[in-house]
Design a protein around this nucleic acid. Structure first.
Ligand SMILES: [Mn+2]
Ligand SMILES: [Mn+2]
Ligand SMILES: [Zn+2]
Ligand SMILES: [Zn+2]
Lengths: 144, 144
DNA sequence: GTTTGTATTTATAACCGTTATAAATTTATA
DNA sequence: TATAAATTTATAACGGTTATAAATACAAAC
């Protein structure tokens, strides 16, 4: 079992991205924190560890990672982009109540679609919205 | 077969939205132009017909329609929201080349998913990205 | 080791889609 | 007609993202 620091290096090397100090930290953050963080969340967390860090570096790194297919942007929010280092097929559920974004299992490629003959498909995203189990529980217990 | 103006009235009445002049025009625009227009596109088109129109009215109307479930916001773009008066199950494909957003057929509710037990699902969105048939044709003919 | 060129990071201004606010106008009610 | 409520307008404010140029770090050549 490879450790996260090792995997960070491998992933960067795999995509021919020079492993600068900050890039390593940003990718590592995403691989440790799988809760689809925003730029602001990544920035404020890493800023505590490295006070000279600039927010532009977060944008630079993330845009590079997305361009190279290392990281997936999640546009389920209308206001800001979230980032996910898991690029394998899975769906995202946003709870309208607690705003948390959950992963869920779904095999996107097994889904039949029509009207896309001769279209070249690069990526597929599935977004569900609603109320998560935790929030639904709270609501139903409030009712009783 | 009901005409679009009739359907506009019915849809607004169905959701208890007062059919003001501008709301009718905005919804009518969305039902005629099924190309998932942005606020700017709706505004500049209607502004030509009604020069006193304010962009805030477009935002007001669309936000009301979305809130009432009459219109679906499409967040496939990172920069701006697009709007769709078709709320029935279908997917959206964005061509990275010509930027056009296509509808495609997909039965979202037939897709099995895991990890969402006891989650309450309000809406489902499916976004694909890639190169549309037209752009793929152009590219392959350029190669030859 | 020093010089020179390149890549990365930093700091900050600019951009732009959206929201908030208050005044003006229209519509409904008494 | 007078009054209240709803809608529209105009515009300022907000906030996430991008653009820009200077500063710093890194690498290659000498
Ligand atoms: Mn995820
Ligand atoms: Mn559509
Ligand atoms: Zn929740
Ligand atoms: Zn195209």
């Amino acid at each position: 079992m490879e450790s996260i620091p090792e995997r960070v290096f491998d992933k960067l090397a795999e995509k021919n991205i020079k492993p600068s100090f900050h890039r390593i930290k940003v990718l590592e953050y995403l691989m440790v924190n799988k809760n689809h963080p925003t730029v602001e969340q990544i920035y404020s967390s890493l800023k505590k560890l490295f006070p000279t860090l600039s927010k532009a570096t977060i944008y630079n790194s993330l845009n590079l990672f997305v361009e190279k297919g290392l990281v997936q942007p999640i546009t389920i929010e209308e206001t800001e982009i979230r980032y996910d280092s898991t690029v394998e097929s899975h769906g995202h559920f946003k709870c309208e109540c607690c705003r948390k974004i959950y992963d869920f299992g779904i095999d996107i490629d097994s889904i039949p679609s029509s009207g896309l003959d001769n279209f070249i498909i690069y990526s597929k995203e599935i977004y569900y919205r609603g109320i998560c189990r935790n929030c639904a529980d709270v609501k139903s217990s409030q009712r009783s």
